[in-house]
Design a protein around this nucleic acid. Structure first.
Lengths: 339, 339
DNA sequence: ATTTTTCATGCAAGCGCTGGCATTTTGCCG
DNA sequence: CGGCAAAATGCCAGCGCTTGCATGAAAAAT
C-alpha cells in the first residue's frame, strides 16, 4: 500500500454539493435518493474514480460482505468444484470469499476458523460437522452463521447443505451385494475427526448386516487421501487372506490410488477385485477402467451454501438443513466377483 | 452478524489500567512494551477473549493483510496446487487470501481485480500478463503490488514469478523431433488474451523452424480447457490429411481430453499418434498411457509469489522477476512415429 | 387553505484502532 | 544524589463511512 490519497465520500459530496450521507445512500440504497440527485452523484463518483474505503465501510457498517470457506484441501478436485460454485454465487451477490485449507487437520482448521472470524468473515462455510466443542462455542459466541457442507446434521444453531454419506455408500454397497460380492474391505480416510469418512464406512457395515453378511470382521484400513498412501493401504489389504472381492474406498482419490497400485501389482480390476470410489470427480472418468462411484452434487452444494449464508446474514432466514441426493454412477471398476 | 458486543481495546485497557495505545502496542509491537506490563495485558486479552476489530484495524492501519488471487479456474488442478502454496505461505505470515476465478474471461477478470482491490487487498496474484492497458493503469494508480505468475515479463512496475512457456514447449517439441516426428499439430487454448497459450505454440514453431521443418502450415486448433472441447478439437485434427504424427496440447487437461477421445475413436496412442501435455498435474500420471508433459513447479511458484508480495508490501523490496525452470517429464504418450 | 403524510436530504455521533508526539518513569553516570 | 538519556507509557487526533434522527419541501388528504 502506498500513501497516495484516494478520493473520499466527502470529495464526491463537495463536488456535487450534497452531504456525504446522500452520496453514501446513492451507493447503498439508491432508491431512497431522488433520481436527479442520484445521477449527478454517480457521475461524480465515476469522474473521480471513487471507491469506498473498505476499512471505513466495515467499521461503520459492521459487516464485511466477506465469507470464509475452510476446506480440507485445495490440491485436488474434491472440493474445488464446490468452492468454485460457492464463490460464483457470492460474487453474483457482490460478496467475496476468503479461503483456507486445513490439510484435514482439526487443529489447523480451528486456527483458521478463528483467523477468518477475526478477519471479519460475515459467515463461514465448513466441511463436515465433527469438531471440538470449544470452537462451536466460540462461533456461537460471535453469532456468526455457519453452513456445514458435505454432511447433514441437526445441531443448533447451524445450517447444513449436504447429503447422507452413509446412505451414499450404502447404496453402492447394496449394488455390490446384488452383484454377488460377499467379502468387502474398506479403504477409508482417517475417521477420528471426520464424520464423512466414518459415515461412509458405517453405511457399508449397515448393508452387510442387513444382508446377514460378515461385517464385524470387515477389513477397514485408513490412509491419507493421496494416491501413494492409498496405494500402500490397498496393497496391505490385498495381502490379507482371504482376499476381499471388493475394496470400497473413502473417496475417488483413494480409489484411483488403489486402482493404480492394483495395475502396478498386476491385479486385474475388476476381474480379480472391484474398486469403488466416492465423490465422482473428473478423475473417476479418466482412469481405465472407469471408476464406479457415488455422485455428489458438488456445484449445487456450493451454490446453496452461499445462498443460505447470504440469506442468514441478511436476516432473511435462520439455520436450515438442506439435504441433497447422491446416486451411484456405474462405470467399469465394479463387476461381479470372480470376473 | 449480530449486535452482540465484543470487548474492545478499551475494555482491555480499563481492566489492566493502562492506555489503549499500550494494549495496541502489546499486540503489534510487543518488544516496545515492558515485559511485566505486556504479560498483564496479554492475560487480560485472553481472559476477555479480545480480538481486534478488523474494520477498525484496517481503517487505522491502512492495510488489510489480505491478498487477492485471481485464477482462470479453480475447477481443475492446474492452479490448485499453486494457490494452495500461495495461501500456505500467506498463512505462515498471518495474512489471508481472497480468491476469485475468472473462467478465462478477461472482462470477468478485470471486474474481479477491481472488486478485490476495493475489498482492500494489499497485493494481488494474477495469472499471465496479457490484459488491457486500462486495468494496468488502474492498478498502478492504486499503487498495489502485483505478482504475475505462470509467465515471465518485464513491464514495470510489476513482479513476475513464472517460467518461460515458449522454452517449455520448445524443449518438448525438440524431444519429439529427436524421436523422429515431422508432422506436428497443436491443440491450443484460446490465445487471444492468453500469453501462456500463445507462448506455448510459439515455442513449438520456433523449434520446427530451427529444424527446417514445415511450420507455417502446422495445424493449430484452439479449444476450451475441458475434456470434451479438447476431444472435439482432437477429432478435427485427426480428420485432416495428412494426419500429424504428434498432437501437442496446451495443457494436461486438453491432452487428457485428446487422449480419451483417441481411445474412443480406436486410435492408438502413442503408436498412431503421440500426445503431449503441459503442466504435469496429477492427471498426467493417472491416465493410460501416462502423459508426457512439461513439469511446472506449481508449489514453488505459489510460495514465492506470496513471499514476494509480502516483501513488497512491507517495503522490503521492489518488483522482481523470478524465473523458474520447467523440464520435460517423459511418460508413455510420446514415442517415435509409426510406433 | 390547512393539516397530514411522504419523500429527500442534512446533521452529527460514533464505529475501534493506530501512531506521532508529549510526558513520565527508569536506569545509569559521575 | 542531581542530571540526563533511554525506555515505557499516555494522550488524542484522526482514519472514512453509516445511520438514526431532525429538518424542510412537496404531495396528498381534508
Amino acid at each position: 500500500m502506498t500513501d497516495r490519497v484516494l478520493p473520499t465520500l466527502e470529495d464526491v459530496a463537495l463536488k456535487v454539493d450534497v452531504s456525504t450521507s446522500t452520496v453514501s445512500r446513492c451507493l447503498n440504497e439508491p432508491w431512497r435518493v431522488a433520481e436527479a440527485t442520484r445521477n449527478r452523484v454517480l457521475t461524480a463518483v465515476a469522474e473521480l474514480g471513487y471507491s469506498p474505503n473498505f476499512g471505513a465501510q466495515v467499521l461503520a457498517a459492521k459487516r464485511t460482505n466477506t465469507f470464509g470457506a475452510i476446506v480440507p484441501t485445495m490440491s485436488n478436485a474434491i472440493f474445488a468444484r464446490g468452492l468454485q460454485a460457492f464463490q460464483d454465487e457470492l460474487m453474483r451477490n457482490s460478496a467475496t470469499m476468503l479461503v483456507s485449507s486445513s490439510s484435514y487437520d482439526a487443529q489447523i482448521e480451528e486456527h483458521q476458523i478463528r483467523t477468518l472470524v477475526a478477519r471479519g468473515a460475515d459467515g463461514l462455510l465448513l466441511i463436515g460437522k465433527r469438531r471440538s466443542k470449544s470452537i462451536y462455542k466460540f462461533l456461537e459466541g460471535r453469532g456468526i452463521p455457519v453452513v456445514m457442507a458435505w454432511t447433514i446434521g441437526k445441531a443448533h444453531p447451524w445450517s447444513y447443505v449436504g447429503f447422507d454419506n452413509a446412505a451414499g455408500s450404502a447404496s453402492l454397497a447394496a449394488r455390490a451385494v446384488e452383484l454377488g460380492h460377499r467379502r468387502f474391505a474398506f479403504l477409508s480416510g482417517e475417521r477420528a475427526m471426520n464424520d464423512r469418512a466414518s459415515d461412509r464406512v458405517r453405511g457399508v457395515v449397515r448393508v452387510l448386516r442387513q444382508n446377514d453378511l460378515e461385517h464385524s470382521g470387515m477389513c477397514i484400513i485408513e490412509s491419507a487421501y493421496t494416491f501413494d498412501a492409498a496405494g500402500d493401504a490397498f496393497q496391505r489389504i490385498m495381502e490379507s487372506s482371504p482376499r476381499p472381492t471388493i475394496v470400497m474406498c473413502g473417496n475417488d482419490v483413494q480409489a484411483v490410488g488403489a486402482l493404480k497400485r492394483a495395475q502396478a501389482l498386476g491385479i486385474c480390476v475388476p476381474e480379480e477385485v472391484s474398486i469403488t470410489g466416492f465423490d465422482d470427480v473428473e478423475l473417476a472418468t479418466v482412469v481405465e477402467p472407469g471408476l464406479t462411484t457415488v455422485h455428489v452434487p458438488h456445484r449445487e452444494m456450493g451454490r446453496r451454501a452461499a445462498e443460505l449464508l447470504l440469506a442468514q446474514v441478511a436476516g432473511e432466514c435462520g439455520p436450515k438443513r438442506i439435504k441433497l441426493q447422491t446416486h451411484v454412477v456405474e462405470r467399469q471398476s465394479l463387476a461381479p466377483p470372480g470376473g
